[in-house]
């Protein structure tokens, strides 16, 4: 071994990439995707606890898409809405009943971690493929990390 680098990914992605990362992340965290109806959600929000997580190190690229997209996922009555904030960063609005703000934040940050994991994984695989490098082994470890081994260059 000669070098070890530790990197904190910055999510810079267009909406389809974020949707793909969220979709992959919820598969491992018990959330399911729900239809987004803004008016219904607004009506339901009145009695719910809410907590917003601003992902400062992120940028949602708009490309040809609009800026009002949202992805809503749900687990045990708690919903997480991923959207682009006014500054262009990713934002997660957590909502739920009988749950504290700190619990919502913890659940939201766990979910965000898994989304970031999926985003990083896809960026890495894409970059390795572009460079003509071969993934010789890939596994999910006991602590839910994804481990990739690359050789042949």
């Amino acid at each position: 071994m000669s070098t070890v680098l530790v990197v904190a990914p910055i999510v810079i992605a267009n909406w389809p990439m974020i949707t793909a990362a969220v979709t992959a992340a919820i598969a491992t965290s018990g959330f399911t995707s729900v239809q987004h109806h803004a008016s219904n959600i607004a009506a339901q929000m009145k009695s719910k606890t809410r907590e917003t997580i601003e992902v400062d190190d992120s940028e949602v690229l708009t490309d040809t898409f609009g800026t009002d997209e949202a992805i809503v996922v749900e687990r045990d009555g708690i919903t997480a809405t991923f959207k682009r904030d006014s500054k262009g960063a990713l934002q997660i609005c957590m909502e739920g009943e009988s749950v504290s703000k700190s619990q919502l934040r913890a659940i939201g940050e766990d979910l965000l971690g898994r989304v970031t994991q999926q985003y990083a994984y896809h960026r890495i695989v894409s970059e390795l493929t572009n460079r003509g490098l071969t993934i010789v082994d890939e596994e999910m470890t006991e602590n839910e990390s994804v481990k990739i081994r690359v050789r042949n260059w």
Binding site: S2, V7, Q117, A120, I124, T141, S145, K147, I148, W153
Partner: peptide, 27 residues
Amino acid sequence: QEEIEIEVDKHGRVTIKTIGIKGKRCL
């Protein structure tokens, strides 16, 4: 053997280890 081992943990943090790659090429 020259190899790179990449680990992405469940918080999104990435650890990149180079194994057997020496000098500048490693970086």
